[in-house]
Structure formats: C-alpha cells, structure tokens
Amino acid sequence: MSATTRFEAALSAFDATLTRTRTADFSARLDEVVDPPAVGSPLPFEGVSLDGTDVVTEPTPAQLRDATTGVTAAAFAIAEYGTLAVRSTAGGDEPVSLYPERHVAVVRESDVLSDADAAFSRLADAFADGPESVVFATGVSGTGDMGEYVEGVHGPREVRVLLLEDR
C-alpha cells in the first residue's frame, strides 16, 4: 500500500477527508473544502497560493476568532497515524490551524512519510539546522473529561487535507 493510501485510511478513522489536487486546480479544490469565513497562513509551496482566494491571510485577531476555517501548510504528514506536522511560523500556522473549527492542511504528496521512524528522522534533520517548533496534530481535538467522549474542544472539530499530487 502506498504511503498516501495509508495516510488516507488513517485520516478516515477520524472522519478527515483527503482531496487530491494538481497545483493547477488548487483554487477550485480549495473552495470545496473551505467553509467560510476562512483565514490562512502563506503556503510555502511552489505554484500554489492563497492570494486571490477568499481565504484571508494576515488576519486580525478578530478575523481569526470569527473564522470557521483555517488553512495552513503541513511541513509533512505521517501516513501511519494520519498525522499533520504543523510548524510555528511568523505567518501564523500554529494559531490558524488551532483556532477555527475546521483545519484545512495543504500537504505535498512527496511529504507524506510512511511512519514515525521516517518522521523523526525528518524532524532530526530540521532540528540539526536549529531549534524548531512544530506540532504533530492527529485527528480532531477531543476530551473524555465530561463523562463521555466529545470531539471538538480547544482545537478544531474537523480536519480536511488537500494533497498536492504533483509536488
């Protein structure tokens, strides 16, 4: 099974969907997975951008608070667990992926790593260049603290992945 197939299977375990797109069709596919109002942080991938979409980059705190969707890049993904690695960037990946109810993560297919071993070796490479800040986000926030399991606590209730097939 390819890493992407395994990634998709792992995502489906927590009702997250994976949408494949080529860079050329990015804006159209993005529209399908965004529930407005949406905020976003700049995407570092060649050929795709949030400019010219309805997604607000450099939002104000009020726009962040009121957004339904947050769009960010994921530095990489771990297929085995359905994990998205989101970096803390000046563009706000961390709060944008955290505050809105829906997180839309844009992932390059070449960044879908098979398992934790591959992910940690990637991480070690990144740390070798200097201290990193990154979160492994897997599924949606949840709690059992109110007597039963409930999804959607301080973090998102929904996760959507946009996979860049040609990157």
């Binding site: 709060p95 934790a116 991480l123 990193e132 800040s133 492994f136 897997t138 926030s141 949840g142």
Partner: peptide, 18 residues
C-alpha cells in the same frame, strides 16, 4: 497510537502574538 497534539515548542516561537 499517538496523542492528538504533540507540540514541540522551542520558545519564544515565531508565531505572531495575538
């Protein structure tokens, strides 16, 4: 198999203040 959020923060981080 893994917690929902494993944050590895090397603060102060680059995230914008809010």
């Amino acid at each position: 198999s893994i917690a929902q959020y494993v944050s590895m923060l090397s603060p102060p981080t680059d995230s914008p203040t809010l």
